[in-house]
């Protein structure tokens, strides 16, 4: 039996799927792209353009399909899915990279501890009812105590103890706490500063410029930031009488006014005895007149055996 014919046809088939080029084709399967960097053959270009273009394209596509069909595949309903590698050709993006979302305090902690995020099912198994119930929401598991028709009350509970209210308050407190934490996370994400810290910084700034040289010769701490926008302004030594008068009067009026007092009055001396309180105490809340009347009559309410 002569099989040379069959073999020859078989080899022809095998050859037809290989592409030989002077410069090997550059294939980027990630973008389904093939680049043929060989210079264009002028002869075939001039003789029959369409045929030349089609054969060029066929060779390129054959090479591309060769690499695509050799990729690892995954089965699907429509046919095999080739798993593509990331592209090697750089293409400009349409929009900038998304900014990383600020982590919440819990996420920071979980990241540091290596805790994996796990999605919680919305439904939980109820042993008593032998059924799946909502974790929260309508007939939620979290509302079970406050919604049941009879509740056990501990023996030492107060008379007005309401177990339903207690359970509800507890749940509501959790909700409030969560909301508070959420808002704190949002404000932290926006880079909001601590108000206390801001206040301290403001005080520090004003104290730093409170010397005659406006802090120029003060001892600098390590890592202390340079003050910005602080300039010492010198008045001219000689100026017109009018101007000097005006400034002095302005200063005086400023010292006089309450709003911007240069030197505040010292704190009021606190009296040792608060008369109003003493009278109230001595008269047992009935007032000074009643106390005067009583002392005049000499007939107060007294404890036995004192006299």
């Amino acid at each position: 039996m002569d099989v040379s014919n069959i073999l020859a046809s078989n080899t022809a088939k095998y050859q037809s799927i290989t592409v030989e080029k002077e410069t090997p084709l550059e294939v980027d399967p990630g973008l389904l792209l093939v680049s043929d960097l060989n210079p264009i053959d002028e002869e075939s270009y001039a003789s029959n353009l369409e045929e030349h273009l089609q054969s060029l394209a066929r060779d390129g596509v054959q090479a591309l399909l060769g690499s695509l069909f050799s990729l690892p595949t995954q089965r699907s309903d429509e046919g095999p899915l080739a798993q593509l590698p990331p592209p090697t050709t750089a293409i400009p993006r349409a929009k900038p990279l998304p900014k990383p979302k600020p982590l919440t305090k819990w996420e920071q902690f979980a990241k540091a501890k290596g805790i994996q995020h796990r999605t919680r099912d919305k439904r939980v198994w109820d042993e008593e009812r032998q059924d799946w119930v909502n974790r929260w929401g309508r007939d939620g598991k979290n509302k079970q105590v406050e919604e049941q028709w009879i509740t056990e009350v501990p023996a030492n509970a107060d008379v007005d103890f309401d177990p339903r209210k207690a359970a509800r308050d507890e749940r509501k407190a959790r909700v409030t706490k969560n909301e508070k934490q959420r808002l704190a996370n949002v404000s932290r994400g926006q880079g909001a500063t601590n108000p206390r810290k801001a206040e301290i910084e403001k005080t520090l700034a004003s104290s730093r410029i409170s010397t005659a040289s406006m802090g120029k010769f003060d001892k600098k701490l390590e890592g202390e930031k340079k003050m910005r926008g602080v300039k010492r302004k010198f008045e001219p030594t000689e100026k017109s009488l009018e101007a000097e008068k005006a400034t002095s009067l302005a200063l005086l009026s400023r010292m006089d006014s309450d709003a911007k007092k240069v030197r505040r009055e010292g704190p009021k001396e606190e009296k040792v005895l608060n008369e109003r309180k003493a009278v109230r105490f001595a008269s047992k809340g009935r007032g000074g007149v009643a106390l005067g009347r009583e002392t005049a009559r000499g007939k107060g309410k007294r404890t036995k055996g004192k006299r």
Partner: peptide, 12 residues
């Protein structure tokens, strides 16, 4: 999605 083919050294 189309396959893309570019042929010429000038593209580089």
């Amino acid at each position: 999605k189309p396959l893309m083919h570019f042929a010429s050294d000038l593209f580089d």
